[in-house]
Nucleic acid binder design. Structure first.
Lengths: 91, 91
DNA sequence: ATGCATTTGTCCGTATGTATG
DNA sequence: TCATACATACGGACAAATGCA
């Protein structure tokens, strides 16, 4: 059972109806952020770590992070890391 | 307002169309040298001071100084400092 | 000559950015 | 999408050269 840095099981890619690998990863991490499991200001695992966790190429992870950036969920800082920027919405 | 040792305001990096941090710093200092605001033979602020002024890592300052060396504008001397070597061109 | 502070030189590890095949 | 390579950037550590008290 593959798990990430939060100990959460990683879904099999392309077996859950997600057409694009990077989008499946982005959606998974976005869910963690929006549920508050990844705190605002906390750093994501590095692109290299994420690519190892998911068993995908680093460029695919970068594409997922770009998706998260465009959704306003994270902010990448050159040489430091990628950080959660938005709090989970109150429901 | 961040200023350097000449009292000049330092531009925000990556907001002036400069893609590279070190190049923005190199261009800024090169402009001072070429306008004669930094005299030939005068010493630049230390790498540590420059990195504090600009709010960047020392290695980034060193990359900028390397750029200035390659343009023939400065000369670094171990244990002493980095000195302006070329006069402003006559116009 | 000794120690201390300053400054450049070098190296390491990690991380993001860009480019190519 | 993968795989690789290189560039840029951060942060820290230590070495080497200089100058001064």
């Amino acid at each position: 059972m593959r798990t990430d840095d939060l100990g959460q099981e990683l879904p099999e890619i392309n077996s859950d109806g997600e057409a694009l690998v990077y989008m499946a990863i982005a959606d998974f991490v976005a869910g963690q952020i929006e549920r508050g499991e990844r705190a605002v200001g906390s750093r994501l695992p590095s692109e290299l770590d994420l690519s190892n966790m998911w068993g995908v190429a680093r460029m695919t992870v970068r594409r997922a992070i770009r998706e998260l950036r465009e959704r306003g969920l994270v902010n990448a800082v050159h040489g430091k890391g990628t950080f959660v920027t938005r709090p989970a919405p109150e429901e």
